[in-house]
């Protein structure tokens, strides 16, 4: 194997690992879209909030990392529920674009609030996990951990949606909102629960990302746009489609980054997205 091939292989593996976290984010966004029919433009900013929570609890207050993670997941779940109660539920009946924009306003709000509270410094949690050597290939342990946890999170979500009453109701509500009441389902409670679960997924993603990236108020912009593309590519609300799309996009970014630069790789991913939208406007897996 030549040296070049090994670096390429490393890029591919890292792409797969990155795909896991992106898939987790896409799952959360798709869940919220599928059930409530809104797109949370500020979804990645919730991740940012989670990363800050973790940072402060662990570094500043000295909480053990696992406890801090748990607190961040619960905290972001609460933020998600709050976002629904304060911003989404008053405008459930208005034009979809207004809902989109209200959450877009939250994006500005959360970014600036983070700047106000924490400044624009890049903050690192100071946890360095070892690097695994597989022959000539180096894989960071934190990425592997992130991938594994994301996969477990995805499986847990799948089981929740297919096995529990609440989960089945969440899938049903996307098909026929009006008659859910006849089933004894209180729509408002389902929406609130969904928002909390979506928030919890963002919180979980925050725990995984904080191991690899520094926190700063604008970190959301590094994940937000690509997550939307993934969701649309997979078909908005289509969980499996989003899951597949996450790995395609992360490969484009990883391999593009290897051959060109990181910006070019993102441009490639976005161009791929636009082209695919024209070939399959209803999503990759649409029939």
């Amino acid at each position: 194997m030549t040296r070049v091939d090994i670096f390429l292989l490393e890029a591919v593996i890292n792409g797969i690992l990155l795909g896991g976290v992106l898939a987790l984010l896409a799952l959360g966004l798709n869940l919220i879209f599928g059930v409530i029919d809104v797109v949370w433009i500020c979804y990645a900013e919730l991740v940012m909030c989670g990363m800050y929570m973790l940072f402060w609890l662990h570094v500043f207050f000295g909480w053990p990392i696992l406890l801090a993670c748990l607190a961040a997941i619960v905290g972001v779940a609460g933020l998600g529920a709050l976002l629904h109660l304060l911003v989404i539920s008053p405008i459930l009946g208005s034009a979809p674009i207004n809902q989109l924009l209200a959450t877009g306003g939250m994006l500005f709000f959360l970014q600036s609030l983070a700047t106000l509270l924490f400044g624009t410094d890049f903050r690192n949690i100071g946890l360095r996990l070892p690097v695994i050597e597989l022959g000539d290939i180096f894989i960071s342990y934190s990425r592997l951990l992130a991938f594994g946890t994301a996969l477990i999170g995805a499986i847990a979500l799948y089981l929740f949606l297919s096995r529990t009453y609440l989960g089945i109701a969440m899938r049903a509500i996307a098909q026929d909102r009006e008659i859910m009441g006849l089933m004894g389902v209180d729509q408002r409670r389902i929406y609130l629960t969904t928002s909390a679960v979506g928030g919890a997924l963002a919180g979980l993603a925050a725990c995984l990302l904080v191991l690899q990236y520094d926190v700063h108020p604008f970190i959301g912009l590094s994940f937000g746009p690509i997550t939307f593309m993934i969701c649309v590519l997979g078909g908005l609300g289509n969980m499996i489609g989003g899951f597949v799309a996450a790995f395609i996009m992360s490969q484009i970014i990883a391999i593009g980054g290897y051959y060109f630069s990181i910006e070019i790789s993102y441009v490639l991913a976005f161009v791929f997205f636009i082209v695919l939208m024209f070939l399959r406007p209803q999503g990759l897996l649409a029939r």
């Binding site: 405008i91 994006l107 609030l113 700047t115």
Partner: peptide, 19 residues
């Protein structure tokens, strides 16, 4: 003194406006 305060209020106002 408060970097981000103006934008925070601005963002909140945007949301309130849309609602």
């Amino acid at each position: 003194n408060f970097v981000g305060a103006a934008n925070t209020i601005y963002g909140a106002l945007l949301v309130i406006f849309i609602i």
